[in-house]
Design a protein around this nucleic acid. Structure first.
Lengths: 353, 353
DNA sequence: GCTTGACGAGGACACGTGTCCTCCAAACGT
DNA sequence: ACGTTTGGAGGACACGTGTCCTCGTCAAGC
């Protein structure tokens, strides 16, 4: 066969049969080489290896899985690819899974399309499904019920308090408790909530922490906190924080501290206050959440909460791999990851009006 | 069959045969319902539909693909999941593909593991492979050659100038030309390059733009530009920019303008200069790249370049889908996307020493 | 009661793979 | 020259699916 003919035929190789024809051996012989079975002459093995690197032939994964080989795929359903912490978790998880020979099927959980996403995962016969982020409660609970009925392991990262769900989550209640205590120590007694209050049930745990911290000092939640989330379209980004901070600044009885849902909103607040000629932390203390890199670069630098994503994902991977080996436990496993308060320049003694 | 027995057997449904047994019909009949073939009583159809929603059964995608159905999968190989613009492109592309019924297999291109990634894609019989970001030139060119030989369409987003590669990329040369011209108009004649110079060939196009702008005004590249990238470990993040800015500030003949590879480095530079008591743009002008949200939130706000990611990805999707329909063109298609200079507060008249 | 039509049952095949088995040819040992 | 060993050829099957085909059954129409 001429070199040109070889090159031409290499494009048409779609199966081991084609490939065997190309090599000039029987299909079964080639298959035995590919799967490292004994009892083959070295010369034959070399011959196949050479053809392999010449053509770049790869056995059809679908046929392999059909034949009984495990798919080694995990479905990962992420809330959003534009939320930095979610993406960092996704990246870390995919890396850990890959190191263990598992590839990942990644989908964004569009609201209402959760059913379709999970069905796609199941049709691909993934070995487990992971959810990263916060979701519509009823929808995700329905999906998890489906997975349990189907016998496919699952794991939820972040969304806390879902019925029957194996969960790994940052202890957001503890985190907010730490933040509020830190500010209470500085003499703050009125708190503006930015993006936390009107939120779906997923933010419930943060509120719990705020409640707990205030109650421990004998303070009343309703008189100590203010939310103006309703004044602007909810966006959870810098611009939202900037506008919201403006609204807080214009209040008659304005709070002395602002608690933001995330660092974007907090940094936006810093900007908004700066534009109004207000100074942080002299006029307002501002606390963020997530310890994004940008939090150390603002002026003033931002007090925030470190999530310890590496720990979260390592725990998640451990739990997940455990489920792949052993039969799934009936009782949902729930692991809380400890947060870490990072104190920087944006928080200080409360303003005295 | 009792309800309990049904529930029990539903867990064991792994094939249409199992499912048909569950419904109490022949496998072929169920298959005809699932594929919408005519000539079936409405009662039968309802019966199957009901069982379908009861059990959540999904046909095995691997068997379908084996049978000849297209996989409807696209392999997306992304440089990194921690680089915000790359992730934004990934998110946008996945969304567009999904709207057209294509799902995506996402992998991170670990250096040296590119071969494995592409082989995985090919074993999954993806319909096309997309690369997003900048890669090791020789490695990715080898992968693209493999894909071409294999007859699988490909597309490169961002990495410009690869041999035989279909490419969609921001016109980075034009972008840098705009930035440099903007600064030249302000009287700047010495430019500090942050993260741009020592970079792999992928940054070549930026250098081209800087060269062009200087040459057009009769200026010499080597006397007008300084790079201190070698002083710090290359990281492309805020902290790297902060340190690098410190090094520029300590120079005897320090430049009047700093050109950063991305907004992270630029914002880090703003921070670094702020810490040294220097003011922007009075002491230094700083220009970023990518127009990340944070660029509008710093003090001063950052002059930068908008990538028009939506346009890039729409163009990419169009090119890709065209390749899926028609046979691949031999001549590589190359599309350049126009950048947009966003002028904010961080650039101004050159300092006079 | 007979024909006709409608509808479902069930067998067969192909898709690409790994594996088992049988069979054949060549190489080897005596 | 003969028997034995070695290594490859090639047939068969299973996996889950869609599709085609044949065959049975049941009901309606004459």
């Amino acid at each position: 066969m001429s070199k040109a003919a070889k090159a031409k035929s290499s494009a048409a190789i779609r199966s081991t049969a084609d490939f065997a024809r190309y090599v000039g051996l029987a299909r079964t012989t080639v298959s035995r080489v590919l799967n490292g079975q004994p009892g083959l002459k070295q010369k034959t093995i070399d011959q196949v290896q050479r053809a392999l690197s010449e053509t770049g032939f790869t056995p059809n994964a679908h046929a392999l899985h059909l034949k009984g080989k495990r798919t080694s795929m995990v479905g990962i359903c992420v809330e959003d690819l534009l939320t930095p912490p979610a993406v960092r978790k996704l990246a870390a998880l995919q890396k850990l899974l890959r190191e263990r020979g598992l590839s990942s099927l990644i989908e964004v959980f569009a609201p209402g399309a959760g059913r379709e996403v999970v069905r796609h995962f199941l049709s691909m016969r993934v070995e487990a499904v992971v959810f990263i982020g916060h979701f519509h409660r009823e929808e995700i609970e329905a999906r998890i019920a489906e997975l349990i009925a189907h016998g496919t392991p699952h794991l939820v990262i972040d969304h806390f308090g879902l019925k029957n769900a194996h969960t790994v989550s940052l202890d957001r209640a503890k985190a907010m408790e730490d933040v509020v205590n830190h500010l209470l120590d500085f003499g703050h007694r009125t708190f503006g909530l930015m993006g936390i209050a009107r939120a779906p049930s997923s933010r419930f745990d943060r509120m719990t922490g705020i409640h707990a911290a205030l109650k421990a000092r004998g303070l009343d939640f309703d008189t100590c906190t203010v939310s103006l989330d309703h004044l602007h379209e909810r966006r959870n980004d810098f611009e939202y924080g900037r506008r919201l901070a403006g609204s807080f600044a214009q209040q008659a009885h304005r709070p002395t501290a602002l608690l933001a849902l995330n660092d974007e909103i907090a940094v936006g607040a810093l900007r908004g206050l700066h534009e109004l000629g207000l100074r942080v932390p002299r006029d307002f203390s501002v606390a963020g959440f997530n310890n994004q890199d940008v939090a150390a670069m603002t002026s003033p630098t931002l007090t925030t909460v470190e999530q310890n994503i590496a720990t979260t994902i390592a725990t998640a991977a451990e739990l997940l791999l455990g489920q792949l080996d052993a039969p799934m436990k009936a009782r949902p496993m729930i692991k809380l990851i400890a947060p870490e308060l990072i104190v920087r320049e944006s928080t200080g003694p409360a303003r005295v009006d």
